[in-house]
Design a protein around this nucleic acid. Sequence first.
DNA 1: TGAAGGTGATTAATCGTTTAATCCGCCTAG
DNA 2: CTAGGCGGATTAAACGATTAATCACCTTCA
Lengths: 355, 355
Amino acid sequence: MDRSKPKLSRIAETLGVSVATVSNALSGKGRVSPELVERIRATAAELGYVPSVAGRALRTGRSGVLGLVLPDIANPLFPQIAQAIEHAAASAGYGVLIADSRGETAMQTEAIGRLIERGVDGMVVVPRRGTRIVEASCPVAVIDSPSTPGNTVAADHWEGGRQMGGHLRELGHRNVLLIGHSPASNVQNDRIGGLKSGLGRGAVTETLWIEKLEAAGGAGCPLGLVEKVRSGVTAVATLSDLIALRALTELQGAGIAVPQAVSVSGFDDLIWSSVVTPGLTTMRMDMETVAEIAVAALVDTIEAERRGGEEQKILGPVSAAVPKVPMELVIRHSTGVAGMGLSQARNRTEGELAS
Amino acid sequence: MDRSKPKLSRIAETLGVSVATVSNALSGKGRVSPELVERIRATAAELGYVPSVAGRALRTGRSGVLGLVLPDIANPLFPQIAQAIEHAAASAGYGVLIADSRGETAMQTEAIGRLIERGVDGMVVVPRRGTRIVEASCPVAVIDSPSTPGNTVAADHWEGGRQMGGHLRELGHRNVLLIGHSPASNVQNDRIGGLKSGLGRGAVTETLWIEKLEAAGGAGCPLGLVEKVRSGVTAVATLSDLIALRALTELQGAGIAVPQAVSVSGFDDLIWSSVVTPGLTTMRMDMETVAEIAVAALVDTIEAERRGGEEQKILGPVSAAVPKVPMELVIRHSTGVAGMGLSQARNRTEGELAS
DNA sequence: TGAAGGTGATTAATCGTTTAATCCGCCTAG
DNA sequence: CTAGGCGGATTAAACGATTAATCACCTTCA
């Protein structure tokens, strides 16, 4: 009664055949008679055989692990991405090793290095804004923005912005405040562009960048939304749900009713978007699909590399066939028809209190 | 000019010594003369030698990878945990493989199985409420609640609750509404217990469980906070920042001023807590320390197992010396002195609008 | 009848590292 | 003068799987 983990040789001697035959049978590669394959399969299952990743990795040179590099794990979008990538990778038979660059650009390179040392077969990278991925000695799938050179796959942020813009336009909003985090982000620029396009030429927009605001006013400083509303803004279209939340509470805290006085919209459909009051109108990206495409592209490249050998060394980002994944407009209660104005909104607030 | 990755043998033949000597020199194990060690180190660096994880793993039987199992990656606390664990693991020279059970209890077992097949040396598990970890054939560190049997390390949720309760008591709150997600969670029960203790015997509390509310009213249903406030509640102490956010917006949306009319407190100091208006008063847990202890316990067990061999097989959860990590009260602006009452709060709201 | 071809299996090398066992001088103590 | 000890290196055997090369045997056709 040997308790140690069964290996190929155990199966082999149990059946009185060679390890090579067992290996062939299990992988379906060589020539093994059907009935022997069946017997080998059976005893393998019976013995609870699990192939050693290390042994296989050493021989084949591939580890069956993908790396996941994100600009900042603390990002609230991370759970969605990680979950989707992990799922897609697991379906393809790969594990996922995480690497955190803790928000620092310099550490991204180091994090990538650690992954490579660990022998990942490929990696999916959500690059820090503006960072170029160069020194990867393995296939890389980049998830950023369709307008980023070298991008592999991404949601169609521009089109998402256009949809949201259209939604606001239909509600009658002509004076819209746009709030993003940083203009250095391709994703945010795409969204802004789409937003403006969707709002149409009749609309007047102003753009606020949190990064600049906080450089002056400190982290978490007020956005000064009350004055903006007073000066005629009827909708605040933000480039992320975190900013939307910030705007929503700042407005509500000042007694301004959302959406009666001002509409607020976000992006990404983060965890809290559905439970706050009013529920946030936002754009959801299909991370499942994005992740599937990214992982598929990676796996394809890895397979090709394995077969092709040294002939075609594909370094740098791999590119997929369908780079743009559509986004979905999620209409909740933070957006409404424009034009009620501030005074009416104040009445409503009082009314609710009095009711 | 051989472009392929340098291995031990390359260094060996470059210097005219044996691979064993190179290995010994690099790992500092055997007996190698100091100057030879130096020369080997030098050429290793020069050649850009990186040890093959696969080769080492095969020989030593350890992969240098830790698994991370969470009840639900979509949980907003996940980024904090993942980041802390990844950091602690990286410092100890380990990689982190993630496993997602997508919120389903059944998949947790399967996820753990996948990690083991991948050959992780140990894993840290944040168990789904009430789940027992049994079938792990490797060291496991459990992060749950100090009151959970088999727990390895956790923040001191009870003491955190007591601190928060004390904070509210000092502000004069005697009628407090407690809101949690599910009574099945040890963590939440600890927090509730501490909260009640901190509030003291003079306080009257009522407890709401979101899970039950939503079972009746559907996901994202209103919490009915307005009536509670009207019936005399001056503070809402929630067991997580997500619930706090939900309470905050529900109250603000109804025109009730926070903290003037009602105080709201949370737990965990999640990403948005500092940027909403008013900033959330919350309890921050020192995930860095928790992660360090968990990883250290794991690494210790792995090391001991390596040296001790088969003698002392430590299956099941490992336990550490310092199981309770203190939490830190973060006072922002969502809590204030009790007693201003609802009417005054309404005045303030109007005042802000008129200013 | 013998060569060619095919099928089902085995042999043995290999991946890169670790490590127990061994070996060779040389110095020292008995 | 020799046995013993020790520092400093080498040899060689794993670890567990994959796979190219080989082999034995059987069929088939010239």
